[in-house]
Nucleic acid binder design. Structure first.
Lengths: 115, 115
DNA sequence: CGGAAATGCAACACTGAGGTTGCACATCCG
DNA sequence: CGGATGTGCAACCTCAGTGTTGCATTTCCG
């Protein structure tokens, strides 16, 4: 979590099936990397790397508990991303609607080209 | 967009800076691959590949106009993705809140607090 | 018609993401 | 203490994604 991750970085962090597998588990129950490795069909080291990426994106929180480190999924970052994507999507569609209405109503301050 | 893209697939499509550059342009103005190649610092072929990915994800629409193919950014898919991410994020946080309240008041735990 | 402009197809190169294995180090528990 | 158990670090491998170049093909316009 060096700084606020960029939008592509956030999406890239979420663009991997294994990471979603991890997130799904962590969304149900906080657990350690070793525990995840026991449940998922990948090595612990791979899990650790994914957890690093997810942590960098602010999607998981790590908490040291004795000799193990327990991770939990954080919804807040995901909600923030969702909000941003929603805004962008609305902007695109607004643009499309504007173009469409312009095409459908030719007398909107546009020189007459037909009659 | 053969079938509904999976969540990781959608995010992966959005996990590239160049594709965001393309989407940003297409969100402002519909244009062809060649036109994009003139504006962006990558070759037309690279643009075409990215447009294929974006099209597969349902994020852009292609329309043939004469000898060229004009692409436009579609906000609807992005809004749908945003909605899904928001739901998931809320679920995670709900889980966290449930655990926290459970830990603080072990006797008054409620299994479901849905409104 | 003839050329400019756009797309389509294919082979190729390079980098990095994802994954593995092996071992060293830390930490808890019986 | 001593053995599990968990984490940390590093070298290594493989392949798909990103990008390039070159050329063939389609399509419009003067």
């Amino acid at each position: 979590m060096t700084a606020t991750p960029t939008l592509p970085e956030m999406c890239a962090a979420l663009g991997d099936q294994t990471r979603w597998d991890i997130l799904t588990r962590l969304g149900q129950e906080a657990m350690s990397a070793s525990a995840l490795a026991r449940v998922l069909p990948v090595s612990r080291q791979a899990i650790v790397k994914h957890l690093d990426v997810l942590s960098e994106a602010g999607l998981v929180a790590a908490e040291r508990r004795g000799r193990e480190i327990v991770y939990a999924a954080l919804g807040s970052r995901l909600n923030a991303l969702a909000h941003e994507l929603d805004r962008i999507g609305n902007a695109w569609d607004a643009r499309l609607r504007a173009l469409k209405s312009l095409a459908e109503s030719p007398d909107e301050g546009r020189p007459d080209s037909r009659a």
